[in-house]
Every structure is written in C-alpha cells, then in structure tokens.
C-alpha cells in the first residue's frame, strides 16, 4: 500500500495543474469566417500499406486583413486503414483498395467535423520595401494544447514547433518497434496524437 505521504506527494502537483487551464494568456485565434487556403490530413504510412490517420492541417486567411494567416493542427479519433491482403499483384487488390479509399475519405469527412484543434500559429506578412519580397511581419504567435487541456502560448523569436514521430515496442515482440503517432513540442509542452498499435498488430505477425 502507498503511504499517505506518497499519495499527497504525487497528487498535489496534479491538482495544481488542472485548474491552471484559465491562466492569463492571449486567447486562441478565432478563425470563424476565415478562408480555408489548404487542407491536408496528418497520417503515417506503414510498410504493409496500413495508414494511420491522426488529424489534419489547415491554413486560413483573414478575409478582412489579406496579410494575416493562421495555420491549425487538428486531431480526431485516430483510425487505421487496413489494405487488401496479399500481394499488390493480386488481381482484385486494386479494386478492393479503391473501395478502401472511399471508406477512408468518408471516415475523414466524418471525423474532421468532430476534431479538436491542438495547435495554432498566427502570423502576418508584409512586403519588404527594398526587396519587394513578402516577408514575415513581426513574430509568429503559437498556441499548443497541453495534456491537461491548458493552452501554452509562445511568441518568441526562434520558437519552433518540434515534430517527432513516436514508436512503441510491439508487445508480441518487444524488440520490434512500430510507429504509432506524432509528438508536437513547443518549449516544455508536448502534445501527442497517436493510435493504438494493436489496431494493426496481430499476435506478433507484424
């Protein structure tokens, strides 16, 4: 059994963290009514043809200020597409995978509307009077959703969102690692989007 001191020791910082959601910082950008400039899914392709769908990336332009932009990263309930079994030379594999593509597109459409944005980056551009080139106007502002649900804000020079694929050992063969997701880090705050490796690992066959 844990001692009371140990329970208190581990719980106290946690209880401090949860109410921290409302700490003072700029609100995340409101992109309602903004023009979507591009959209792409965040996914990881595995060797066997499986694809892990984790979220999306989209860029928006402010219709009022043509020089203001926001890029968002969204996460949805992750899912894995499992392709037709057998070789790609199997006569019907192509047909089957066409059907899979349709199912994937439908699933993405269904999940995007139920997605949570976990990262915003807002920036403005300006035309350099001397070079006539479009350059960043001021510092980019970044928001990253932390594990507790609190937003972490940063607007400093050289702030970058670090992106790293994460992999975990296969429980059926612990010497083998499988890609499961992506960790985004902004200074000390990390946000992970991932799937369950056992959606596509079966009894050590992988």
């Amino acid at each position: 059994m844990l001692s009371r001191m140990a329970i208190l020791a581990v719980l106290t910082p946690g209880l401090m963290l949860l109410p921290a959601i409302a700490q003072a910082q700029p609100d995340t950008p409101d992109i309602t009514g903004w023009n979507q400039l591009n959209f792409t899914t965040i996914n990881i392709s595995l060797e066997e043809g499986h694809v892990i769908y984790l979220g999306y990336e989209a860029e928006y332009g402010n219709p009022v200020n043509q020089n203001e932009f926001v890029k968002v990263l969204g996460r949805f309930i992750s899912f894995v597409s499992v392709p037709a079994g057998g070789s790609e030379r199997t006569p019907y594999a192509e047909v089957a995978n066409n059907y899979l593509e349709l199912e994937v597109n439908e699933a993405i459409q269904g999940q995007v509307v139920r997605a949570d944005i976990f990262h915003y980056v807002r920036w403005k551009t300006a035309v350099n009077a001397q070079t006539k080139q479009v350059v960043l106007d001021g510092l980019a502002e970044r928001w990253l959703l932390g594990p507790t649900g609190a937003w972490f804000y940063s607007a400093e020079e050289n702030d970058e969102l670090l992106v790293m694929e994460i992999s975990v050992p296969n429980k059926y063969n612990t010497k083998q690692y499988v890609k499961v997701g992506i960790q985004y880090t902004l200074k000390d705050t990390a946000h992970i989007i991932r799937t369950d490796e056992y959606y596509f690992i079966n009894s050590g066959k992988r």
Binding site: F79, V80, S81, A84, G85, A96, Y99, L100, V104, Y199
Partner: peptide, 12 residues
C-alpha cells in the same frame, strides 16, 4: 470482392 478482401477501417 472488396468486402471479402480484408480491407477495413479500425479504431473508430
């Protein structure tokens, strides 16, 4: 053919 081929989406 597609349904019998093993294609599927898991996790949702």
């Amino acid at each position: 053919v597609a349904r019998q081929s093993g294609i599927r989406i898991v996790g949702l």
